[in-house]
């Protein structure tokens, strides 16, 4: 039943939509929205946040150059749907929503994007590309953790370890290592 649900009219429509060439210039106009979503995910605390490390530049570069057409379309369509959702339900753009509303919106999208069964998630990712919010989050986390400020302040970065100590006591507020 789940499979037949996937192969619905909506599914076929979506599939045709995602194999056409994406409008990337449109995406660049959404830079401030992308920065805002990323900052809600990874806010500035006592350490830098997503905006401090310019995660939006990383996300745009990744979507434009390091992403296949399917995922590009799914991301751009997802972002449009995201904006529409804000307008329809909150009557203004995400940037103008309150912090609480912003969290509510992201939570709604995350719930919507993930199926209950992991196997369905996998099939969905493979055929339609990763859902917008899932892809966005991955990029935001990666962009943050591999940036200079994110790696060296948000996390712990050991440029030249010299020694390997296999079993040391975890320090208070110990951050995890930025690289492996």
């Amino acid at each position: 039943m789940l499979i037949s649900a996937l192969v619905s009219y909506l599914f076929i429509y979506k599939w045709i939509n995602i194999i056409s060439n994406p409008n990337l210039s449109l995406l660049h106009k959404k830079k401030s929205l992308i920065a805002e979503i990323a900052e809600i995910m990874i806010p500035r605390t006592e350490t830098p946040g997503a905006k401090d490390v310019k995660v939006e530049d990383f996300i745009l570069g990744m979507i434009e150059f390091c992403t296949d057409i399917k995922t590009q379309n799914s991301f751009i369509n997802g972002l449009e749907r995201f904006e529409l959702h804000c307008l329809n339900n909150y009557h203004h753009s995400f940037l103008k929503c309150s912090h609480q509303e912003q969290i509510q919106i992201l939570t709604y999208f995350e719930k919507d994007a993930k199926f209950r069964y992991n196997i369905i998630n996998k099939i969905n990712n493979k055929i339609l590309g990763k859902p917008f919010i899932v892809k966005f989050k991955e990029l935001a986390v990666e962009g943050y953790c591999t940036s200079k400020l994110g790696a060296t302040i948000g996390l712990a970065y050991d440029y030249l370890p010299v020694r390997y100590d296999g079993c040391v006591i975890l320090q208070q507020n110990q951050k995890s290592w930025a690289t492996r």
Partner: peptide, 11 residues
Amino acid sequence: QFQDRYYKGRR
């Protein structure tokens, strides 16, 4: 287990 332990360096 070993939640209070970590490593240092990248073997």
